[in-house]
């Protein structure tokens, strides 16, 4: 029982770390662009698949961690600007329902791109996990990759992101646009550039989540949709646009899910959403969100 609990906690932490990286990208993009990118999960999947390919190509296990980072950056740097400039820039002024439909269409497209490029057979490439070996915690051996690297990268991502948004000029510009787009435009902020940068960072975070998840699981079609739904649950539970909130909620949902895996496996898929519904019933704008009244 004790061991199982420990194991569940460790699994939960590792899972929460991945979940956070994807969810924080989703919530960041929403905060600035006011668009929820339904295709965000596909960027996670593409990051994961590309990572798997690059790790295979790298050959030497020592290079495999580098390959993961490269996959995340390449996905973010290519897909981010391509989607923002090519598609989203055309729909900022449109109705919400049309914006949703456009990113949903993109989602449909990217899910198949993935199948066309990487096929439908499961891919598994765990060189990075093997490279880092195992460590002992409380009597059980656990992979250093999941115990240290995943949570470590997630923590660094959280700290770096908050530092970037609070302390750098570009970051503060992004925050200014989040709060009041019109005022930001009026004082000469280049909103177009802010959108581009933010979306690219968001896409990169999703891809990073995917790249880091790749060595721990076998990749099959459908991981993208699972991730978008789950990271939406995280973001909704936290409150749309809440970055630190997303970290707390990712932890909550990640732990709850892995506890369910060990102790109530039939509930695994339901638990995150039960949590979300329970929170939203009490706080409709999420744990950390605030309801805004429209001016009349």
């Amino acid at each position: 029982m004790g061991l199982l609990l420990l194991l569940a906690t460790l699994d939960g932490l590792a899972y929460a770390a991945q979940l956070f990286m994807v969810a924080v990208g989703l919530t960041l993009v929403f905060g600035v662009l006011k668009i929820l990118n339904v295709a965000h999960g596909s960027l996670f999947a593409i990051g994961a698949y590309l990572a798997s390919t690059l790790v295979g190509l790298a050959g030497a296990p020592e290079l495999s961690l580098l390959a993961l980072a490269l996959a995340a950056m390449a996905t973010g740097a290519v897909m981010g600007p391509l989607i923002e400039r090519g598609l989203l820039a055309r729909i900022y002024e449109k109705e919400h329902v049309l914006q949703l439909l456009v990113t949903f269409a993109l989602f449909m497209i990217l899910e198949d791109v993935q199948k066309l490029v990487w096929g439908v057979q499961p891919l598994f490439e765990d060189a990075p996990v093997r490279l880092l070996g195992q460590v002992e915690v409380g009597g059980i051996f656990y992979t250093a990759y999941q115990l240290l690297l995943l949570p470590g990268v997630a923590a660094v991502a959280l700290v770096a992101l908050t530092w970037f948004l609070r302390r750098t000029l570009l970051g503060r510009t992004i925050v200014a646009v989040t709060h009041d787009r019109e005022a930001a435009t009026a004082i000469g902020i280049d909103v177009r550039r802010v959108h581009l940068v933010t979306f690219t960072i968001g896409a990169g975070l999703a891809a990073l989540g995917g790249a880091l998840a790749a060595p721990t699981t076998s990749l099959v079609p459908g991981i993208g949709v699972q991730m978008i739904v789950l990271s939406f649950a995280v973001v909704a539970t936290a409150g749309l646009g809440q970055i630190e909130g997303a970290a707390v909620t990712a932890l909550l949902i990640g732990l709850a899910r892995s506890l369910a895996v060990y102790f109530a496996p039939e509930l695994e898929v339901v638990i995150p959403y039960l949590l979300m519904v329970a929170v939203l019933l009490v706080r409709p704008a999420g744990l950390f969100g605030r309801t805004v009244l429209q001016r009349v």
Partner: peptide, 17 residues
């Protein structure tokens, strides 16, 4: 079979845009 959703997605984009 592996590009059906993609075709739908493109047509959807064209109609909406």
């Amino acid at each position: 079979p592996d590009a059906w959703q993609m075709i739908l997605g493109f047509v959807l984009l064209v109609i909406i845009l």
